[in-house]
Each structure stands twice: as C-alpha cells, then as structure tokens.
Design a binder for these strands. Structure first.
Lengths: 340, 340
DNA sequence: CTGTTAGCGCTTTCAG
DNA sequence: CTGAAAGCGCTAACAG
C-alpha cells in the first residue's frame, strides 16, 4: 500500500537516508550511483511521493502553463482552435489555462497584466478587436505572446493569421464558375478584425472577377451569431434578389440558409450559399454548406508551436505566419449533377 | 512611465522605505496607517509591481486554479459545460485549467496523480467510462473532485448528474402524444456511462407508455459522432420503418435527419426525430430538432459551484445533485399546424 | 501599527 | 558522486 498523505523531498530523503539534494537529482534523472538511485526510488515509491509543481515553479521560474485567451468559448472557431492548441501544448508538456475574455479589449489588457503574475509562461491571444491600448499592452508584456489574427501594420509580434481576402476570392471564384452573377454578402460587425477583413475581401474579389455589387447586396449582422444572421438575411432578402450569398462565417451562413428555405427559396437551385471557417456547422447543415476554410486549426497549431519555440528561444526573430485558405465545396453551392 | 522589469516585494519595500511585511499587508488590504499605505501604493505603482502567483501559491498552499477534465474538447456538450464552468470559476476568482483526457480511463488516472502535484486546487471530471481503477483513484485523491455524470452505486463523491431515464421519458411521451407508435432508438456505445443510461431509459420509457420495441428498432453507433450516426441510421432504415426515432445525442440526431432526408423521407411528416443534450446543433438543424435538455449547462454550473463550496469547506458532507431534464420541442417532431 | 523572521518545497551552486 | 546550504517571492506568526 502506498502512503497517501502528502510527502515531500525531505520525507523521502529521511526514509532513504540520503540528502534532499540527492533525491532531487535522482528524481530528475541526473547522474547518481546505482545504489543511491535504488534507495531513493524505493523510498519515493513507498511514500507515494509526487513532486510539488508550485515549489518547482517558484524555483525554476517556469510554470509549464500556457494561457489561451478567447473571446467566446462557445464560438465553433475557437473551439476548433482550442482543440488543436490543447493537443500541441500538452504534447510539449505544458498545461493549458483557458482565459475567457469578453470581446472587450479592456478585459484583454487586464489579462495581460495578470499574466505578469507569472501564472503562465506565455500567452496565445486571438483578439476580435485590436485597439491602440491593447497594442501598447502587448508590446510592454514581459511574457511571450503569440497573436492569432491580424495585427495593425508595423506591430512586430509573433503572429499567425489567415488570408481572408484570398479566402473570399476562392468563394467568389467558385460561385462565378457555377454561373452566379449577383453575389451578396452577409457580414458581421465591421469594427472587428475579421469583419473588416472579410468586407474588404468581398469588395476586392467582386471587382477582380468583373462583377459589380451595390449597397442592397450587402448587409451587416450585429454579431457573428445565428440570431443576428437571421435578421440580417431577412433584411437582405427584403431589399434584393441575389443568386448567391457569401456569409462572413458559418453561423451566419446557417442562419441565411434557414431564412432562405423558410421562404421557400431553394438552395442551391435558386440561391447558392457559402460560409466561412469551415466548422462542423457547415458540414452538419442541410443542405451541407460550402465553406471557406481559413485554417483555424492550422492557425492554432502554428501559433501554439510558435509560442513553444519562443519559450525555448526567447531571442528568436519575430515570426509572422500566414495560413492559406482552402475551399470545402458542399451541397449549398453546386447544382445536383444529373446522375445517369 | 511605469517600470517594466520584474519587481518584487523587496524592491517595493526598499523604494517605499518600509518592510516587506508592510508592503504585503497593504497590498492585501490588511490594516495599515494611511501614510504607510500611501507610500507603498506609490512605490508599487512606480515599479509596476505585480505580485507573483507562484510564490504566493507556495506559501498559502493554494493555486487558485481549478482543473476541468473533458474527454473531447470538440464535443458540443462539453463545450457548453466549459462555457458555464469558465464563467462560474472565474467569477469566484479561479483560473480554469483545461485537461483534455482521451476517453481512456487510464489517462484520467494519470491526470489524478498529476493533480497531486498541486497545480490545481480541485478537479471537475466528466468521465465517459467509469472503471474500477478509476473509482479507486478518485477515492484516494488528496484533492477535492466533483464528478459530472453518474457514479456506480455506493461511491460517495460529490457529483451532479442528469436523469436521462426521465429525459428519454419526456421524449417518448411527447412522441406518443404526437401519435407516433413505432419509436426507434439510435444509441452510442453502450459501454459508456451515457450510452448505458440512455439505453435503459429508452427501454423503460417504451414499456411505461405501453409500446413495444424490437431489436430491429435499435441500433448502436460506434461513437457519439456524426459519421458514426450516419452509418447507424442507414442500418436502422435498412432493417425497419419507424415513425419516430430517438437519438442518444444531437449529433446522432443530425446524422439521422440527414440520412432520412437524403432518402426522401420527410421529417417530421413521415418520421419524427428527437435528439438529446439540446445543443446548438439541434437548433441550427433544418428542420430544427426537438431535443431533450439534460441540463448540461446547469450540471456544469452546479458542479463548479459544488467544487468551490467544497474548497471553502473541505469537511462538508458529500452532496449528490440530480438535474431534471426538460424538452425543447422544435420542428422535427411536430406536424405543421394548419394556419388559418 | 509595523518590522523581523521563519519557512512553503524545490533546484542548484559550491564544497568535500 | 554526494551533502550542505542558499534562496525563488511571498505570507504569517511573533515581537516590539
């Protein structure tokens, strides 16, 4: 039977009849004689010794924890990221601390200052809005931070971002190939990083493919959520008759899809729908929704690895990574083929 | 400009010309004279002092961290739970450490032993499978643990669980009211806690409402996932013709729905579909899916509060909470009303 | 009310 | 190769 009460190095050392330094060495795999090693192992086992993480942290100045701050724990994109981050981080021997900030930049600034309490060794941050004070706080942080998402030009911080302009380009190109001409856009708030980027991507792509767009082909949801999407789609359909709709994320796409079918408009027959982020929601929808994969999982993975690299080598040059988008074509944008 | 290098109590004390004890007191809001307070505040501010969490933890024997172990970070139910846990926990001043164990009980046992390293003050655990060794490990844990989910009879640990038998009862009752007679069941693996509970709930309910079921009305998916659900639903439809299908979770329900519509079977006209867990997936599906809310969010919230209570009062009697299910009726189970 | 001091449990020089 | 001892930064007796 193994002792279940809390035991320390001192206890183990006493039982083994050696010094605590020796115990520490053996347990950390440093050179020691076989006899010593044996004695220590035995004593440690008998006492059910488990080293104390806090004490170790205080001594070595590391916590082996990485913090991941997300604006919305429920957002499927963040969930996908978390999934990936969790995997990479734990494989590298770190624990994952989840910090849920709201989308309020102030929360994130507070997070940064609390980071300096040293409860984690580094931070992964995916801000929805990047304000001036946030940038300042990021710059003056003592701990390594990797940003997932775009940064204002000139801000030199490790970061990995998506190329949403190229992503929307893929969507528009695909729709054009399918013979669509009047491509509408359901966006989320334009004062967010993704909202702004996606809008500019839409406008750029429309022009690049020689199409035109007008104000009544564009609506903005108050939020990147299903509910807001329903309302925005309703507004869109009241003011125009597109033959294709690009949505700034999958939730908005699902909402748009629902709004369409509830009005008896067929997808993809009458209107094609394309989402972004390529989350489960797109795959599970009925019909399943074509979606631009902005590489959430890849971004998260790259970011986590970047942070781990930085922790190992604090002096490494700043690295900025761009993940290329891909398109997952599904039912919502392709007319059923005539099967023989 | 605030000093950005790391500063300690000693530095602040020197600058303020007082003892470190005084600094500690002031910063922790213990009684001190106004002048002292003022001096300390000023020095701390000037140095940009931030207390070190690790040192504090070592001293006070608390980390202010709560660990939440989930089998699958991507599962919507866990996501909903995380959401709630994150909220409760951070409001109570704890950080959330996310530990992703696989569904392997061995992983969870290792987690328990690493918990004894003291990186967290307590653990929320929602095991998919509860094995004998797991129970043993749970029992001998030095730290408070709250289990989300059912426990074998006789295991006295804080826990909060759902009443899935009653939940399926709600679903069956509703379907019976809608005039359905041949109610099939798409389950997940029966060697999991939810799988076993839901199967028994189905059998109990069928009997209670005077219906009958046969082997060909029951299928088991290899997993609680969409893909596995598609296959299971296909098998079911190949072997029987139910007029209603209860699915052991929403993902299976979405899969079943898709399998049905892809065969031209109308929902709810020909077949009614009911899911469980009442996740976003049910709401977003088209048609939206009626789902049994087993109170994931409530359970998570209750569990988190229970753990926090236990941390505050380690001697409190063991508490076992059962959350009552409710039914969210949506389109997939109700024939469209004739609107005047 | 404030200062001195003893550790929390561990790692890591520094001697031997 | 092993032991003694010095702290990591902080809190909490205990004196004064």
């Amino acid at each position: 039977m193994v002792e279940t009460r809390k035991s320390t190095l001192v206890l183990v050392a006493e039982r083994a009849g050696v010094s605590i330094a020796s115990v520490s060495r053996v347990l950390n795999g440093l050179p020691a004689s076989p006899q010593l090693t044996e004695k220590v192992r035995e004593a440690a086992e008998a006492l059910g010794y488990v080293p104390d993480a806090t004490a170790r942290s205080l001594k070595v100045g590391r916590t082996d924890q990485i913090a991941f701050a997300v604006a919305d724990v429920g957002n499927p994109v963040y969930v996908a990221m978390m999934h990936e981050v969790s995997r990479v981080v734990s494989k590298a021997g770190f624990r994952l601390v989840l910090s849920s900030t709201g989308n309020d930049p102030q929360d994130q600034i507070e997070l940064l200052s609390s980071l300096n309490r040293g409860f984690a060794d580094g931070l992964l941050l995916s801000p929805l809005r990047v304000t001036e004070p946030l940038v300042a706080a990021l710059r003056s942080s003592r701990l390594p931070i990797v940003i997932i998402g775009s940064l204002p030009a000139g801000v030199e911080l490790d970061n990995v971002r998506a190329d949403s302009v190229a992503g929307i380009g893929l969507a528009v190109e695909h729709l054009v190939e399918q013979g669509r001409k009047h491509i509408a856009f359901v966006n989320g708030p334009v004062d967010t990083v993704p909202g702004a980027a996606r809008l500019s991507g839409y406008l750029t792509s429309i022009e690049r493919f020689g199409l035109t767009t007008t104000a009544d082909l564009q609506v903005t949801a108050s939020d990147f959520t299903y509910k807001a999407g329903r309302k925005a789609a309703a507004r869109l359909l009241a003011q125009s008759s597109p033959d294709a709709i690009v949505c700034a994320n999958d939730l908005l796409a699902v909402a748009t899809l629902k709004e369409l079918t509830s009005r008896g408009i067929r997808v993809p027959d009458d209107v094609a729908v394309v989402g972004m982020d390529d989350t489960d929601a797109a795959e599970l929808a009925n019909p399943s929704i074509t979606s631009v994969d902005l590489g959430s999982a890849k971004r998260a993975k790259a970011a986590a690895k970047l942070l781990i690299r930085r922790l190992a080598d604090p002096g490494a040059p700043v690295k900025q990574v761009v993940i290329e988008p891909t398109l997952s074509v599904r039912e919502s944008s392709v007319l059923a083929e005539v099967t023989v």
